[in-house]
Simulated assay, not measured.
Amino acid sequence: MAVIEFINASNNTYKGMKRAIEYIKNPLKTAPHLAGGKDCSPDTAFNEFVMVKQNFKKETGRQFIHFVQSFSPNDKATPEIINEIGRKLLEHEAFKEFQVVYSTHTDKEHLHNHFIINSVSFTTGRKWQLSKEQLESLKEYSDQLCRDYGLIIIDGAKGKRKDRGEYRANEKQQSWKYELYLSVKECKWCSRSKEEFVANMEKLGYKVDWSDERKYISFTTPSGKKCRNRKLYPPEQFTKEALLKAFELNKQQATKKQMQSRMELLLSAIQMLSLQDRNNNQGHYPLTALEGEGRKERAMEEAKGRGLDWDKEGGKDM
C-alpha cells in the first residue's frame, strides 16, 4: 500500500509555492506525461492558483499544501500506473473544489507521487482543511486504490513491507467498530438485495435492524454492541441508498451463484483464521486480521469469476 505524508513547508508563500510546483515538475525527477492537474493545467498552475487567491482576497496565510504518496520499491508497477493511482486519489471528497497539480517521480528506488494543493477553493474561497476523520478516509481510499492495482503494503516509518493486520491492530486497537465496518463493506459487495445483505451479516454474527420506517440501519455486534450506519465512515457510503445501489450493481454484474461463492470463500477464510486466533489466544476480529494478511483479496478475486469487475464501484468504500 502507499504511504501518505504531508510536508510542512517552511516558506509557505507565493515564492515557496512557485518553487514547490517547479520542484515536483523537475524534468530530472519526472517526465511531462507524468504531470497533471485537477481543475488546473500543470503548465500554468501557479498563475491559476494566484488568480483564485486574488479573486477571493485570500492572499495571506498558508498558500499551498504539499503531500507525497509513496510506494514500495518491490511493487511491480510502471510510473504510468502510479500516476493513474495519483490521479484517481484526487477524486476523493477532500479535494472537491480545490485545484491540485501533481506528478510522479521516478528518481528514487521507490516511485512516488507529489501533490501541491491550492489552499483556497476556486468556488467558495474557503481555506483547505483536513480533519482527522477525513485524513483516515483519504488513507483508506489510497489503500483501496492500491489493492485495486495489486500493490503491496509498506511500513512508512521504515520503508519495509508490513502486514496490514499489524497496522490495524496498532491503529485501531482491534476496534469492534472497525470490524463492523469491514463486515458491512464485505456484505455490501456480496449481496444482491436487502434480504441477502441481512442474511450475510447474520452469517458473520451480526443482527441488522433495517426498517423502512426508520432513517438509519442499526447493527448489533456478536458481543452485543450497537451501532448505526451513520457512525460508519464515510457515512455516505453506508446509507440505505448507497447500499441499495451496490446491490443493484451486483445484480447486474454477477449471478446469485457467484455472490454465494464469494461469501462462502470469505466465511471459509474467516473460520480458518478464527481457529488460529483461538489456538493462539488472540483477539476475535477475523476480518481485521484477514485484511492484514491479504487472504481476503485473493479469496475475493477468485470468487468474482472471469469477466467480472467490481473495482470501479467497490473501490469507493475505502
Rank of each mutant, 00 (worst) to 15 (best):
Y149P: 01
Q69G: 00
K25N: 12
R230W: 11
T124F: 03
T123P: 10
L180Q: 00
G292Y: 02
M300H: 14
K172S: 15
R19N: 06
D39W: 15
S268P: 00
E22N: 12
M272G: 10
N55Y: 15
K139L: 06
M259A: 14
W128I: 12
N279F: 12
Q69V: 01
L182G: 00
R298F: 03
E302W: 13
F6W: 08
G283C: 07
A199E: 14
F71C: 02
E179I: 02
F67D: 02
K296A: 10
L145Q: 01
Q144D: 04
E195S: 05
K139I: 11
D107I: 05
L90V: 10
K88W: 10
D43K: 11
E84D: 15
Y285K: 05
Y23S: 07
Q99C: 07
F71V: 01
E293A: 11
I21R: 01
A289Q: 11
W189L: 07
Y285V: 08
A254N: 08
I24R: 07
G307F: 06
I4H: 13
E264W: 04
K76H: 15
N229G: 09
F64R: 07
P79D: 04
L232M: 08
I117Q: 03
T220R: 09
L275C: 08
E5N: 13
L28W: 08
P234C: 06
L287V: 03
K215P: 04
C146Q: 00
L138Y: 03
K226V: 12
E293H: 11
K231A: 10
D209L: 11
R262M: 14
K25D: 05
K57P: 03
E109Y: 06
N118K: 06
R87C: 11
L145Y: 01
W310L: 14
I24V: 11
Q276G: 15
I270A: 14
G156D: 07
D39K: 14
E22C: 06
E236P: 02
P42Q: 09
L180P: 01
L180M: 07
G224E: 08
T221K: 03
D311V: 10
L204F: 11
E195W: 00
H33Q: 15
F247M: 06
Y233I: 08
E93D: 12
C190N: 15
N55C: 13
E202M: 13
L138A: 03
D311F: 13
K15E: 14
A199Q: 09
K225R: 12
F49K: 03
Y141R: 09
D311N: 15
C40L: 14
F98L: 05
G292D: 00
N83I: 03
N281E: 13
K304N: 13
L249W: 08
V198N: 01
Q258P: 04
M17H: 08
V184M: 02
G37F: 05
N170A: 09
L111H: 04
A94R: 06
Q237R: 09
R192K: 13
N170K: 13
I65V: 10
V208D: 02
D209Q: 14
M1Y: 01
K15N: 15
R147P: 01
A199K: 07
R298C: 04
